[in-house]
């Protein structure tokens, strides 16, 4: 029992934060030509997803419908897979830099048909 009782925050407020993070991440992926910048955009998009999952399973959020554990476990998996993805993407960036001496993705067009 929580004392004094807190009012619940509506789910739409959390989802709006998720929307902003998702849109900024997509814009980052489009506008930046740097491989690290694109990686930062991907991290923003993944965080938008984890915010939505955590809010949808929270007892402190009005309108949340998932059981309390499921969203948190999904968000945990997202965080772990994002860490793995960052490691692999960084290795690719280093290899790319070794071959081209830049990480501007516009220069990586050797496979262009």
């Amino acid at each position: 029992m929580i004392d004094p009782p807190l009012t619940q925050i509506p789910l739409a407020a959390y989802l709006l934060v998720g929307v902003v993070l998702f849109v900024t991440g997509i814009t980052c992926m489009i506008a930046k030509r740097n491989l690290i910048g694109i990686l930062i955009g991907i991290e923003l998009v993944l965080n938008a997803g984890t915010i939505n999952l955590a809010a949808m399973s929270s007892p402190f959020v009005a309108g949340s419908s998932l059981p309390p554990l499921d969203g948190q476990i999904f968000a945990l998996f997202v965080i772990l897979l994002a860490a793995a993805e960052a490691a692999a993407a960084l290795a690719i960036a280093l290899t790319f830099y070794g071959g081209y001496a830049t990480i501007d993705v516009d220069h990586g067009d050797r496979l262009k048909g």
């Binding site: 929580i2 009782p5 739409a12 007892p59 402190f60 309390p68 948190q72």
Partner: peptide, 19 residues
């Protein structure tokens, strides 16, 4: 997001402890 179904009644106070 705005079309997301929301509870009609005012949100109750939090009684459920966190996980």
């Amino acid at each position: 997001n705005l079309r997301f179904p929301r509870p009609a009644d005012p949100p109750p106070a939090v009684t459920e402890p966190a996980v």
